[in-house]
Design a protein around this nucleic acid. Sequence first.
DNA 1: ACGTGTGAAAATATTCACAGCT
DNA 2: AGCTGTGAATATTTTCACACGT
Lengths: 252, 252
Amino acid sequence: MTAQRNELNAVSDNADQRATAVSDQRAIPDATVARLAIYLRALTGLGERGTATVSSEELATEAGVNSAKLRKDLSYLGSYGVRGVGYDVASLTEHIQMTLGLNRNRAVALIGIGHLGQALVGYAGFASRGFRISAVIAADPALVGTRLRGLTVQHVNNLNEVVRSEKIAIAVLAVPASSAQDVCDRLVAAGVTSILNFAPTVLNVPAHVDVRKVDLAAELQILSFHDNRKAARADCAPFAEVAPATGAVSVR
Amino acid sequence: MTAQRNELNAVSDNADQRATAVSDQRAIPDATVARLAIYLRALTGLGERGTATVSSEELATEAGVNSAKLRKDLSYLGSYGVRGVGYDVASLTEHIQMTLGLNRNRAVALIGIGHLGQALVGYAGFASRGFRISAVIAADPALVGTRLRGLTVQHVNNLNEVVRSEKIAIAVLAVPASSAQDVCDRLVAAGVTSILNFAPTVLNVPAHVDVRKVDLAAELQILSFHDNRKAARADCAPFAEVAPATGAVSVR
DNA sequence: ACGTGTGAAAATATTCACAGCT
DNA sequence: AGCTGTGAATATTTTCACACGT
């Protein structure tokens, strides 16, 4: 059947785990955290359309998952639904934002302003979903000092000061693979502990630093694999392509 | 050591696979498929540096995973290693490429040429890893007909012809969320069965179509969550930040 | 010796199915 | 009557640990 849904990237995990023994506020599974971001997106949409309440079934459809998974996920945050009724859109939105730490608007530094970097600076989706790019950093001296979307491009040597003065929480790495590790090391030295890496290379970081990556070509390769499979299957069973046309998320 | 604790990012999975019942050449788990792309990247690097043979330990470090996982993953492809020696870089590279269906160079259509779309057209990583953007499509009539990186921008109404004439295998959706579903429907109608979606919205597609998504803001939100956790932990245990600097993946 | 390949164990994640609240 | 919250069942993924080939 092949389903269609999206499902997400998973996560890292970074052994949190006991430590401090107490205060161990129920750990939220990584897979759940990744989906919370999607639920939030769906909730925001619902809120804008004026919906005040949603059932797990509706929200699940909206988010492209099944309702049992959604309820289980939300149950890790506590009990914010009302039996027989559903979830209050506004308060659930707020709870998820809180859980993801989005209450304080987080400052993001972008390093590397090639094609991709420039696209990211202009990406409206960051601002609308809790992030503000507060620093743009490049290695090329020719670019330093120029202005981009209201920000003055800083040199990578000033990383320390920029990170400190702008209180950078997260760095987005959009530099070539060849310099990614070097820049990453500097970021870590400057105190950054969360990095989103677009360079097609594995970053080496100390244990307290979180790295997530987006590998565009890898995504296409994964699609390619499945496509290949479909083609092979079609060869064997030329009439298999029935496909319910609009199928809900279904899966099953 | 070079620790490889990156270990993060996990994977996504996207459509399930199985099915096919018969001719079910040992099904490769989704988690494995997603990592094959990473191994391939690492192998390419090793090949270029002249390495002829790698052990699972070395390749795993290079790819940021642990060696048991790597061996298990590769075992799904068959036996391409030599006990006591390791894997032949060239032949393993080829086998993974074959498995991912990268032997034939796949044509990709890009729909939407805003900031992100333009960055993607120029992204060298696609070409170098088996994909060629062979069509660029926009909805804005003002853009249609202009040239971009050697390609003439086509109108979205010509989707059918373009998909057919260029033998498009995969479509990359870089349009605003508001038109994503509409464009997606047209793509499906034109026969596209693999879509990489950058729009922050869930796409509804029939079961035979595969969708993977990249949600940039969601990635930042996930980092934000972990960052928040780290901060909370630091509050309770101010001296916890020992971080073995290079420690293994830990997590136990 | 060395390092792959793999069963078996452990850890995670998903789905089922229903008790219990509104 | 409807829908959440969740134990229990299932499925998937990761890790261990070691037999076995070279």
